[in-house]
Design a protein around this nucleic acid. Structure first.
Length: 286
DNA sequence: AGGTCGGCCTGGCAGC
DNA sequence: TGCTGCCAGGCCGACC
């Protein structure tokens, strides 16, 4: 699934290629992409607009357009934003949903097998910031993200730490893969109530989040199923997982078996030796 | 108000 | 073999 490292990989590959280009044509082939807004409305809003820059916030890719307009895209589960060079045929791409034609003849195409991906046009920086801030907490790779920021966000919360990490309003950009990797690195069990963690736990969790995300970035993201970078290439982070998807295999730290459980409704991988389970609440006597 | 859960969607796979 | 039904998961809205 595209999480922060995957989306940032795509952004880095595309940023210089789209900056300064004008969108000469926009075709939204799947109305689900823009729903509840009509595709024609989005196409009209994009045609003729120049792309000033491409940036990322959490798992959102944002194209800053001229006239204070913004195209906010989300890949969700199976979305891909692909670069198609002028002359290459884009029509045969599987699950093609959106096509943006640039003034140099190159194209950006959004493909999405499961059609969860979205595109939203927002007019005005104020509205954009409001849209993002309502959904997203701090950027975990920004210098302002510290163990204390994490600790303050967790204060008083009873949610399991894995649910906390998956909640984009607490920390932006972490999904199922990097939550598992970060918790393993920190030696924290995913079901532990986040508000019960100690200061030292937040230090290790912070370090684990940053290390897991940077590892993902260094390997151009994880291609478990549909994820491809902007060039259609697979990342290699899936070969570097310490714990995620490794049920039955030996823990890289202690050699014990990796086990799978469900936390926050998601398949979750842990080493029960390195990540000690919280004590279960006592059941009242009958 | 914080936390949990179902729905969205499709392909792959288990089971009959 | 071929069909049905279930599962995966990010985000959002409904619900408790």
């Amino acid at each position: 699934m595209p999480e922060l490292p995957e989306v940032e990989t795509i952004r880095r590959q595309l940023a210089e290629r789209v900056a300064g280009r004008t969108i000469v044509d926009a075709q939204v082939l799947d109305p689900l992409w823009t729903a509840p807004v009509a595709p024609a409305e989005v196409e009209t809003a994009l045609r003729g607009r120049a792309v000033e820059r491409l940036r990322r916030r959490g798992k959102y890719l944002i194209a800053d357009l001229d006239e204070d307009r913004y195209l906010v895209m989300h890949l969700r589960m199976t979305g891909n934003l692909l670069w198609v060079a002028a002359g290459d045929d884009a029509a045969d791409r599987a699950h093609l949903r959106v096509r943006l034609v640039l003034d140099d003849g190159n194209r950006l195409v959004f493909t999405d097998q499961r059609r969860f991906g979205t595109g939203v046009v927002i007019d005005g920086r104020e509205l954009l910031e409001r849209y993002l801030d309502a959904r997203l907490g701090p950027e975990p790779l920004d210098p302002g993200f510290t163990p204390d920021v994490l600790r303050a966000a967790a204060h008083g919360r009873r949610a399991p730490v894995k649910a906390f990490l998956l909640d984009q309003r607490r920390v932006a950009g972490i999904g199922n893969i990097y939550a598992d990797e970060a918790l393993f690195r920190a030696g924290i069990h995913p079901l532990k109530p986040v508000g019960r963690l100690r200061r030292a736990d937040f230090e290790r969790l912070h370090a684990g989040i940053v290390a897991a995300l940077e590892k993902g970035l260094a390997h151009q993201g994880a291609s478990i199923d549909d994820y491809r970078d902007a060039n259609g290439e697979q990342g290699s982070m899936q070969n570097e997982f310490l714990i995620h998807l490794r049920a039955g295999q030996p823990c890289p730290r202690c050699g014990g078996p990796v086990t799978k459980l469900v936390a926050a409704g998601r398949g979750t991988y842990v080493c029960r030796n390195c990540q000690r389970a919280p004590r279960r609440r006592r059941v009242p006597a009958p």
